[in-house]
Amino acid sequence: MSLASVRYQKFKRETGYSGEGEVYTNRQFEKPEPKVPWRAIGTATILFCTGSVLITIGALLLSGVLDSQYSDRTWPVLILGFITFLPGIYQLRIAYCAWRGYAGYSFDDIPDYHD
């Protein structure tokens, strides 16, 4: 978007001067409705699911349910599972609480990719 295509609009003068001719309107203090960061929520869902699968496989390897031939991969799988699970569940929790409208949670708290 170029600066030439941006249209500016003057505010109409209203009562309520600050003393030097500046006008304050209620519109400039309104916070816009936050956009839902769908890509970030999708990425968090993928991280959560991948981490859950890796933790499950690591736990099965650790308990011996899966073949002991793969026992050297137990700890790397568990660590990688926790590394992917934790950020995924954290972002999904914020998204769920913002969707439900709990106080202190907003979709603005989730980093977005700025398409």
Results as ranks from 00 to 15, higher is better:
residue 1 M to Q: 05
residue 2 S to F: 09
residue 3 L to R: 08
residue 4 A to F: 12
residue 6 V to P: 01
residue 8 Y to T: 13
residue 8 Y to E: 08
residue 8 Y to W: 11
residue 9 Q to D: 12
residue 10 K to M: 14
residue 10 K to P: 07
residue 10 K to S: 15
residue 11 F to P: 06
residue 12 K to W: 06
residue 14 E to S: 11
residue 15 T to Q: 14
residue 16 G to A: 06
residue 19 G to D: 05
residue 20 E to W: 07
residue 20 E to V: 09
residue 21 G to R: 03
residue 23 V to G: 00
residue 24 Y to F: 15
residue 29 F to V: 09
residue 30 E to Y: 10
residue 31 K to W: 08
residue 32 P to F: 04
residue 32 P to K: 01
residue 39 R to K: 13
residue 40 A to V: 11
residue 40 A to K: 00
residue 40 A to E: 09
residue 41 I to S: 00
residue 41 I to E: 01
residue 44 A to W: 00
residue 44 A to V: 03
residue 45 T to N: 05
residue 45 T to E: 02
residue 45 T to H: 02
residue 48 F to K: 00
residue 49 C to Q: 05
residue 51 G to I: 05
residue 51 G to C: 08
residue 53 V to S: 04
residue 54 L to P: 00
residue 54 L to H: 01
residue 54 L to T: 07
residue 56 T to C: 12
residue 58 G to M: 02
residue 67 D to Y: 07
residue 69 Q to N: 11
residue 69 Q to K: 12
residue 73 R to P: 02
residue 78 L to M: 08
residue 79 I to Q: 08
residue 84 T to S: 12
residue 84 T to W: 08
residue 86 L to E: 05
residue 88 G to D: 02
residue 88 G to H: 00
residue 89 I to F: 06
residue 92 L to C: 06
residue 93 R to M: 13
residue 101 G to C: 06
residue 102 Y to P: 05
residue 103 A to K: 15
residue 104 G to E: 07
residue 105 Y to W: 15
residue 106 S to P: 03
residue 107 F to T: 02
residue 109 D to H: 06
residue 111 P to Q: 08
residue 112 D to E: 13
residue 112 D to C: 08
residue 114 H to N: 12
residue 115 D to W: 13
residue 115 D to F: 13
